[in-house]
Design a protein around this nucleic acid. Structure first.
Ligand code: SF4
Ligand code: SF4
Lengths: 134, 134
DNA sequence: CCTAACAAGACATTTTTTATCCTTTTAGGG
DNA sequence: CCCTAAAAGGATAAAAAATGTCTTGTTAGG
């Protein structure tokens, strides 16, 4: 239960690698993939998701590649994870009202809310800066 | 990410229902299943898992059924969840050393440890007693 | 020995994960 | 203007996990 998928793990490895590079070094996807040992085609999909929400900037054509969208200290692990895995949902009832008919009186419901909060807090408390320093 | 499966949700609903019954009322699986709206055959599998580790006691034959293995205040939500979902594993590297070749120097690794700890703490802090009181 | 009830294992279906491939778009350089 | 580099996007496929069903076996009571 509660396991990060490979996609999530790959996403983190990829963007942490990017964060560890000199600030304006444009990185090729193929280089990142090789460095962090992830299938290049799969990492491509991941970085496309990053790109759409501005976590990374992408440049096409010769001399193209990827750059971090913001400075590493402004990107949290929570953002990275949620970018590819979607929101942190320990149980479907935390999505919103109406997901479960029992949620009004359910005693378990608030527990999942608490779990969600704790996980989010931990992940939001870590930035790419800390993760990329050696 | 991090979503409880139906199995886990069903497990909780089933055992919370059992905890809400009078202490020595033997409950039929079919009754529990109907009460908590879970497919009876699926719930059977779940209760078999509970039974193996003593979370519930089972009796076969006429007049048989299920009883809670311990008093509700001695059973935590963590036990229930782990009984059917396995241990709380936010990322495979928290399973143990050697799961990931990078774990020695990895900065992300301790974050997952922290997540694991927080989730376990929340779930371990809730007992069936609290969940079954109205 | 007949019936009630759980146990156990095999099987089937659906969904999710984990990719791969192909075509398109964008950009730079000669 | 073409050629090449590189990312974007979409379709597809294989593998794994989740979700559930079915059949048969076991245990106990009457
Ligand atoms: S925890 Fe309660 S509210 Fe949430 S899905 Fe389960 S029954 Fe519904
Ligand atoms: S977080 Fe680090 S140690 Fe854990 S699986 Fe990822 S790379 Fe390996």
């Amino acid at each position: 239960m509660m396991e990060l998928t490979r996609k999530g793990e790959y996403a983190i490895r990829g963007i942490v690698y990017l964060a560890a590079q000199p600030p304006d070094r444009v990185c090729l996807l193929s280089d990142i993939a090789a460095a962090v040992d992830v299938p290049a085609t799969f990492l491509a999909k991941i970085f496309q998701q990053f790109s759409k929400i501005g976590l990374v900037k992408s440049y096409r054509g010769t001399g193209g590649g990827f750059l971090l969208g913001r400075t590493p200290e402004k990107i949290t692990l929570l953002e990275v994870v949620e970018a590819v895995e979607g929101p942190i949902i320990p149980n479907r009832c935390v999505v919103g009202a109406g997901e479960c008919v029992r949620d009004v009186s359910c005693k378990v419901h608030p527990v999942w809310k608490r779990v969600q909060g704790q996980v989010r807090d931990v992940l939001a408390g870590v930035t790419l800066k800390e993760l990329s320093e050696e």
